[in-house]
Simulated scan of single mutants.
Amino acid sequence: MLQIGVTGGIGSGKSMVCRIFSALGVPVYYADERAKWLLNHDHQLQRSVIELLGNEAYTANSTYNRAWVASQVFQNPSLLQQLNAIVHPRVREDTEAWMKQNAAAPYVVKEAAIMAKAGQNNALDKVIVVDAPVALRVTRVLQRDPQRSEKEIRDIIARQISDKERRQIADYVIYNDESKLLIPQVWKLHLLFKK
């Protein structure tokens, strides 16, 4: 079974690309969404996060306090690294269990904001990068998340790897710049992967 990674910067449209794969019957693992789910439902993971960051990491009703955690770790690279060292192994275990459940599929897609080149400390066979100009990405996120400011979105983009670095890990690039249709680009890759 082929394992295909899909990544891209905030607002690039990687989730839309994955929804197209899903509509084609391809199992899709949304790593960032599963990480959020695990942070809210996996009690051992919650205890580990609280040990690292304190009780403020969760609200009174035991919901992961994402905004507070972000305010703590994004100014402190060492703390961010420690948090990732807690969360990433648990997401990796969850991914492996999901892969086993979908072993009969010709190929599966894993979506994640952070991804290494295929075969570089991961089980991915190929990586698709979804690419879009920064100005368009900012506009999309402002429409999707009106509570965010343009400055906040641009700060997130600045913390992510650059588009150039992202393209260097790509086996394939899907252009979501509104000049090319998405579905034909995904369809072409779908035909290639399901062989």
Rank of each mutant, 00 (worst) to 15 (best):
residue 5 G to S: 05
residue 106 P to W: 03
residue 160 Q to W: 13
residue 127 V to S: 08
residue 131 D to F: 02
residue 3 Q to D: 01
residue 160 Q to A: 14
residue 108 V to M: 12
residue 95 T to Y: 14
residue 75 Q to W: 01
residue 19 R to C: 04
residue 133 P to E: 15
residue 95 T to C: 05
residue 16 M to H: 02
residue 90 R to N: 01
residue 12 S to R: 08
residue 40 N to Y: 01
residue 43 H to S: 11
residue 169 I to R: 13
residue 131 D to H: 06
residue 129 V to Y: 10
residue 190 H to G: 11
residue 89 P to W: 11
residue 64 Y to A: 09
residue 122 N to I: 03
residue 62 S to M: 13
residue 13 G to P: 04
residue 74 F to E: 03
residue 130 V to H: 09
residue 149 S to D: 07
residue 59 T to F: 03
residue 106 P to Y: 02
residue 90 R to M: 10
residue 23 A to W: 02
residue 116 A to L: 13
residue 77 P to Y: 13
residue 90 R to S: 04
residue 128 I to M: 05
residue 84 N to H: 13
residue 107 Y to N: 07
residue 139 T to Y: 02
residue 126 K to D: 00
residue 76 N to C: 10
residue 158 A to Q: 15
residue 135 A to K: 10
residue 74 F to N: 04
residue 154 R to N: 11
residue 26 V to Q: 10
residue 151 K to W: 06
residue 170 A to S: 04
residue 21 F to N: 02
residue 126 K to F: 07
residue 23 A to Q: 15
residue 70 A to V: 00
residue 159 R to V: 02
residue 7 T to G: 07
residue 76 N to P: 13
residue 50 I to Y: 00
residue 167 R to I: 11
residue 107 Y to Q: 11
residue 150 E to W: 05
residue 72 Q to N: 07
residue 144 R to H: 09
residue 174 I to Y: 08
residue 183 I to V: 15
residue 130 V to N: 12
residue 33 E to P: 00
residue 150 E to Y: 04
residue 142 L to M: 14
residue 191 L to A: 09
residue 177 D to F: 07
residue 97 A to E: 13
residue 24 L to P: 02
residue 92 R to P: 00
residue 150 E to Q: 15
residue 41 H to Q: 11
residue 189 L to Y: 10
residue 38 L to I: 10
residue 59 T to L: 13
residue 4 I to S: 07
residue 165 E to L: 12
residue 137 R to S: 08
residue 21 F to A: 04
residue 45 L to A: 12
residue 62 S to G: 06
residue 146 P to E: 09
residue 33 E to N: 02
residue 10 I to P: 13
residue 10 I to F: 13
residue 102 N to K: 14
residue 91 V to M: 00
residue 71 S to Y: 02
residue 47 R to P: 00
residue 129 V to D: 12
residue 3 Q to S: 10
residue 43 H to I: 01
residue 54 G to A: 14
residue 13 G to F: 05
residue 58 Y to V: 08
residue 139 T to I: 01
residue 150 E to T: 08
residue 99 M to A: 06
residue 20 I to R: 04
residue 4 I to F: 06
residue 71 S to C: 00
